[in-house]
Design a protein around this nucleic acid. Structure first.
Length: 365
DNA sequence: GTTGAGCGTT
């Protein structure tokens, strides 16, 4: 039984040893403690030229057949469409599609977010909270939530940093504040509302020898896979369900190579739901056009050729953006920049310094 | 004057 797993960010980076649980599994949370934002692991089996994902169930990573000691594992991050990995699977034979171009452009820094601080001493005030977290970087928001009637602290609050690096640092460790261990997490309110129907993708053109395990191994590089289904008798397609619907949606419309076969990924929504989706998209065209303008790209959900210089966003990209517009969360779409999109609140480094102790403007609707 | 998992009166 190995005590540690060697994990590194990239092939050339030094590995970090992350402890294995008593039952031989590895917790994603432990990986994320060393690699903030990590959502999974992949590795190179000796007999394979492509990466293989580590099985992930409910935040628990299960050891591959050869165990944790067999090789170094690499960190997966949820940065929206994982184009680079798809392309390596395809041996870079395919032309760069519009979706790939769009995804590369859209794939910038992760977002800054307010962070919830749990477990504060009831005596800690907003100034002390800010002073503590200033050790990690510039604090642009510090709040302690009080009981409306008693006026006393409820023992939790919120902080926000001016830059994402500070946020990562603060999120990657526990904090001793006023003599108590406190937790710092992304707020629940910022989590994606998951729609089970949109978390599932259709995998078409499957070869007959494909197994649910093949699909699971391939798709877990993009995010946590919660279910794989191949109808019996074999009908050349299957379904893969992700824990995060944005991951599923980011893959739709692509062709990927699995076990040497080009399979097609599409939305698994029923037809009537797809129709409703279409009309919903139509209503957001103006907003998306504004987004496209901000990014300097053409936006066209029908993927017709752009006049000049720009490129199109596929329906899958538009779907991901639409979701972001509706939830106010761009985290899994990866659209960078604090301003100019024209949808959703603007908040953060650009906000006035007098915001330091309160009245955050980030209301996320 | 007490408490101790959680999620934000604007």
């Amino acid at each position: 039984m190995g005590d540690f797993v060697k994990i590194s960010e990239n092939e050339n980076d030094d590995a970090v040893e992350v402890p294995v649980e008593k039952n031989g599994t590895l917790l994603v949370s432990n990986v994320a403690a060393q690699f903030p934002g990590a959502c999974g692991l992949r590795y190179r089996p000796v007999d394979a030229q492509s990466y293989r994902g580590v099985r992930l169930v409910d935040g628990v990573l299960h050891p591959p057949a050869d165990g944790w000691k067999s090789c170094v594992f690499f960190v997966n991050y949820p940065k929206g469409p994982v184009i680079a990995d798809v392309r390596s699977q395809e041996k870079r034979k395919l032309e760069e599609s519009d979706a790939v171009t769009a995804a590369k452009l859209l794939r910038s820094e992760p977002r800054i977010s307010d962070l919830v601080v749990l477990g504060l001493p009831f005596s800690t005030n907003e100034e002390e909270l800010k002073d503590y977290f200033s050790a990690f970087g510039s604090v642009v928001l510090s709040q302690v939530k009080n009981d409306p009637v008693t006026g006393k602290s409820k023992g939790f609050g919120f902080v926000r940093f001016a830059d994402y690096e500070s946020q990562l640092k603060a999120m990657s460790m526990r904090h001793m504040i006023g003599g108590r261990w406190c937790e710092v997490k992304l707020p629940q309110s910022k989590m994606y509302p998951q729609n089970p129907e949109r978390s599932r993708i259709f995998v078409g053109r499957c070869p007959e020898d494909i197994t649910t395990e093949d699909l699971r191994q391939f798709f877990c590089q993009f995010g946590e896979v919660t279910d794989v289904y191949i109808p019996k008798p074999f009908r050349s397609f299957g379904f893969v369900t992700f824990a995060n619907e944005a991951v599923a949606q980011s893959l739709c419309g692509q062709d990927v190579i699995i076990k040497g076969s080009s399979v097609h990924l599409a939305t698994a929504e029923p037809k009537n739901a797809a129709m409703r989706q279409q009309s919903r998209l139509a209503t957001t065209q103006n907003t998306l056009a504004g987004l496209g303008a901000a990014l300097g790209v053409g936006v066209n959900a029908a993927a017709t050729p752009a006049p000049t210089g720009g490129f199109n966003l596929t329906p899958a990209m538009v779907a991901a953006m639409t979701q972001a517009l509706q939830t106010g969360n761009w985290g899994n779409v990866g659209v960078g920049g604090m301003g100019g999109v024209g949808a959703g609140p603007r908040q953060g480094p650009g906000a006035s310094p007098s915001n330091a102790y309160g009245r955050p403007s980030g209301n996320w609707m």
